[in-house]
Simulated assay, not measured.
Amino acid sequence: MTQQLSIDFARRPLLSYAHDYPHGATEPWHHHDCAQLIHTLSGVVKVETPHGSWVVPPSRGVWLPAGTRHALQIVGAVAARTLFVHPLARADLPAACQVVQISPLLRELIVSALALPEQYAPGSRAERIYELILDEIRVMDVLPFGLPLPQSERLLALCQRIQQAPGEAWTLERAADELCVAGRTLARHFSRETGLQFSDWLRRARLSIALTRLAQGDSVLRVALDLGYDSPSAFSAMFRRVLGVTPANYFPAAETRPLR
């Protein structure tokens, strides 16, 4: 049974909340009667929903529409800043779960909102900050860190098998052989149920695992080899294409930890 958590907005369109999580912390399945934006300053948050998972790297955020059932897993020491947004605050709030880029402006606005009063006068500084936050939420850039899961039993089992052995030489043809179907048939069904091509889904699955492993302190070399990359440089090139920096720069400690 999923727990519903209600937020008292008083007269505000949103509520800002700061919370730090230790490594290994979890939040069980629950949902809110409002939308939620979780912004991480450090560590990695993995968000599970019935339709997929979203891995949130440091300095990014995850948007959860009102009523979304979800559970959280914390990797590393996570400093989180959360916005709870009234579902009627704006008519065009994002309608789907997504990992998003947090702009420098939005980051500072979230911090400022922590000190805003519950009640405020029309035209006041507090009202302008709240309204600007809502404006920024509407234009957040979506990042490719979501990992949608198929709903059919056979495809879901295949995806779970891949996640358990991400370093194996997975191809569309091999996956099709596992299901005893033609490659074109698998490609069609996979795209229809996940919205992604098989190769794109595989890349996201491996990146999701990599972010979690690196946040735990595993070395770049160990992660690259375990995920099936020929060399750390090949893995780093993929990581840089997606995140804009190498894993050594994104998780500096991962470069100095021993292999494990």
Rank of each mutant, 00 (worst) to 15 (best):
I110V: 08
S53C: 00
Q36P: 00
G76D: 00
L14V: 07
W54V: 03
Q73N: 06
S124Y: 13
V56F: 00
P122I: 13
A224V: 04
L5A: 01
L227K: 05
S233V: 14
T82V: 06
Q3S: 08
H39S: 09
V139M: 05
P87Q: 09
R260V: 08
L202I: 02
L225V: 09
R206F: 01
D20F: 03
T68E: 05
V75Q: 13
V111W: 07
G217D: 00
P58K: 00
P232C: 05
L155K: 09
A79Q: 14
I162C: 03
A126E: 14
L41E: 09
W29L: 10
A18R: 03
D135P: 01
L227P: 03
L105D: 02
G67A: 10
G195E: 11
W170Y: 08
R192I: 04
R184A: 15
E168C: 07
R257W: 12
P87C: 14
R184T: 15
T82R: 00
L105F: 03
R240G: 01
Y120W: 09
L214G: 08
I38R: 04
S208L: 04
A215H: 06
S124C: 11
S53E: 08
S103C: 02
R138F: 05
E255L: 15
E168D: 13
T212W: 03
V242K: 10
L109N: 10
G43L: 06
G244T: 12
T171G: 05
L132A: 05
A157I: 04
A71Q: 12
I74D: 04
A169G: 08
H86V: 06
Q160F: 05
E173L: 09
M1I: 04
A182L: 12
A254F: 06
F145L: 10
I110F: 00
R184M: 06
L156W: 12
P166R: 11
T171W: 07
A77P: 04
A253W: 11
L134I: 10
D135I: 07
T68P: 03
F84H: 13
P150E: 10
Q73F: 09
C180H: 15
A96K: 12
T194F: 07
H86G: 04
A95Q: 10
T40N: 13
T49K: 03
F190D: 11
Q164H: 08
N249R: 15
W201G: 14
P232Y: 05
P13K: 11
R11E: 10
A165T: 02
L64A: 01
S231F: 12
A175C: 15
R138L: 11
P87Y: 10
I137V: 15
T2G: 01
A210K: 01
V242Q: 04
G217L: 03
V44F: 03
R213D: 08
F9T: 08
F239P: 05
I209N: 03
H32P: 04
A210V: 07
D8H: 01
T40C: 11
V56H: 02
Q119A: 15
H23F: 08
V45M: 01
A35G: 15
E136S: 12
D92W: 00
A115L: 07
L155N: 12
L132I: 02
A210D: 10
